[in-house]
Every structure is written in C-alpha cells, then in structure tokens.
Design a binder for these strands. Structure first.
Lengths: 179, 179
DNA sequence: GGTGCCATGTAACGAGTTACATGATTGG
DNA sequence: CCAATCATGTAACTCGTTACATGGCACC
C-alpha cells in the first residue's frame, strides 16, 4: 500500500515515467523506500485504473515511447489523507543483527571482521549523505522552502549512519575487552 | 530465506514449538526479525522436510499437543555457513520518513504533532531496552559469555532509539526556526 | 456466558523478487 | 562486435498478511 503513496509523492514533485521512477528510487525517496521496476509498473497500472494518476504517451525518436504519469486530484486527496494518518514505528528487520546475536557460534575474529566490513559500508553511506548536505543544503538557514522537509529526512539519514559507526566502535571495543 | 535462519537461531538456544516461536518473536530475536505464526508454521514444515530440524510430539493434559522442534546437524551446519556470509546493509523502509518528506503538503503543526507522537513511541521503546539492560546486563564487565552477543544487539537497539530521539528534537527545533 | 489463552492449521490474497523478452541507440 | 542505456512489459515464484477454523480450559 505504501508503495502507491511513495510513487505519488515522487510524481507530485515532477511527473515522470515508470522507468524514471525506478531509477529515482536509488536516490531521494529511495533512501527510505525501495521497489523494483516490475513492482512500479504493476502499481502504476493499478493507480491509473483507479483514476489516481493519468498517463500521457510521449513519442520519442529512436527510442521507445515514454508514458509520463501525473497525479490527478483524486490521487492527491488520497495522498493527503494518508499523510495525516499516524504510522507505526517501522519494524527493524536486520540480517546483520541476527548474525551478531548468534555470534557465539562462529570464531570471534570472524565477528570482528564482520563488524569492520559493516562499519566501512555505513561510513560510505554517511559520506554520500554528507556530500548531498554540502551540495544542496550548504546552510540550514537558507534552505529553500520546498526542500526543507527533504532536508529533515537527510538529517535522519546522517544521524542513522553516524549511530551505526558509533555502535561498531563500541562493539569492537567490548569484544576486545572480553577476549 | 532469513526467516529460516532466525528460527534456527532461536531453536538452538532452546527447542520449542511454533507457538512458542511466534510468541518469542515479540522479544529478543523479535527486536530485529518479525514473523506471523502462519509464516512460522509454514517455514517449520519446510525445514522439517529438508531435515534441518526435527519435531517431537508432546502430549499434554487438557491442552492441544505440542510439537517441539530441535535443530539437527544439517541445520546447524547450514546456519554456520550462513553466519559467515557477508550481508548487505538492511534497506531502510520507513513510512514515517516518507510522510515527513512530503510534509509540505499538509499543515505545519500536523507535522510537528507527528514528530511528537513519533518521539514518544521511540521513548517508550528506549525504556523497554534500558529495562532489559538493567535487569540482565547490570554491568557489561560481568556479562555471561552466552549473552555477550545478545548484549551487543541490545546496545544497538538503545543507540538506535536514542538516535531517533535526538533527531526528533533537532527536527522540532528546525521547524520552529523556519516558521 | 463471553473473553482470552493454548496450540495448530487452511485459504486467499497482496507485496516483493528473479528471470526472461523485445528492440533500437550509443560508446568503447 | 559486445555491452550498456533507454523503455516497457510478462511469467513464475517466494515471502508476508489477513481472515477463518477448531476445541478444550481458565477466569471473571
């Protein structure tokens, strides 16, 4: 269900095709919602049937036609209703933590290695977020109105990654003292 | 796929029934992996067929029979192999962040209200985790060997919730200065 | 007498994944 | 010439959710 709303949010910013949506789900909205292109096409078909969005076929030279989707009034009003509803906390589903939990079953240096690798990946993700912060939100003061809320979510991303780094350091330290 | 391993991890600690597993998925393993009882029963049937686990029927007076599952050698070796494999970062899938991102579509005080509610829920979750820390891991020094890795995951939970609280405070402050 | 716990299960559906398919264009 | 990008789609599958079903026991 949320996928539909994620698509609407993205289409409101700017009408685009299924292909564009699939790509965009690597950045911005993609930082907190993911979908494959098959899921997206399926959902778009449904939304068009329900009259929440409308497609406009754009002929292109030397490439396949594009179907550009825009949000209709019906879609927008459903989206606003949904935005006002309260949402439960997102459940944590983390394979890595499951592996740590069962860590006593494998050698201790394998665990430390795992945490190191994990730390490195979060480090990289943090750098990605920080680059966005530098490029688009140089000063939180003069943040343009439209992107203020996007900035809030970016701040969450940065804190999230930093939190992981801190945990990795603590975990490695604890492991060392326990040896 | 991970569900199977989550079940194995729990069954290794202590053999139990599908019903017990479903309940237990509220605590401990349930903090980072969830499943409904139907998913669990379905998966247990499959694991038994694959010879990864074995069931023992326990007759009970005045209640339905119990089927207690234990992990077999085949299951344990598969689990260990899996534990050593590296895992990707868990994708963030968060409806709340999606709503914040689209926050410019609804009144600003509704957003602040949302963040307040959200903060309160994370506050409660944090207290749950802290209670566990106080009761079972009074001092990280004398943490019993078996629960050391569980303690690491608990520390992650605590940091995660604290991180949300900090973000909520920052977000509310930013909203106030922007008004 | 109704609600809730114990314990297991079926059925149907919706969401998400993986593989396959097409066909033209651009770049190394 | 091969791979990648653009752009859309079908098919088959697994994973996850919701509803329904049974049947005895304990508690208020």
């Amino acid at each position: 269900m949320s996928l539909a709303y994620a698509l609407l949010v993205s289409l409101i910013c700017e009408p685009k095709s299924g292909y564009d949506l699939a790509k965009q789900f690597d950045g911005s909205v993609g930082f907190f919602w993911q979908a494959t292109h098959q899921q997206i096409y399926r959902e778009l078909t449904k939304l068009e049937q329900q009259n929440w969005i409308i497609a406009e076929a754009i002929a292109q030279e030397g490439r396949p036609d594009k179907k550009i989707f825009s949000v209709k009034d019906l879609g927008l009003s459903h989206l606003k209703t949904w935005l006002l509803q309260s949402s439960d906390l997102a459940p944590v589903k983390d394979e890595f933590l499951l592996k740590i939990y069962a860590g006593y079953l494998i050698p201790e240096d394998a665990i430390a290695q795992k945490i190191q690798t994990h730390r490195h990946r979060h480090q990289q993700q943090l750098e990605t977020y920080q680059a966005i912060e530098r490029n688009f939100f140089s000063s939180s003061q003069d943040c343009p109105k439209e992107s203020r809320f996007a900035y809030l979510t970016l701040r969450r991303g940065i804190r999230f990654e930093q939190g992981w780094l801190d945990w990795c350091d603590e975990a490695l330290e604890l492991l060392a003292t326990w040896e």
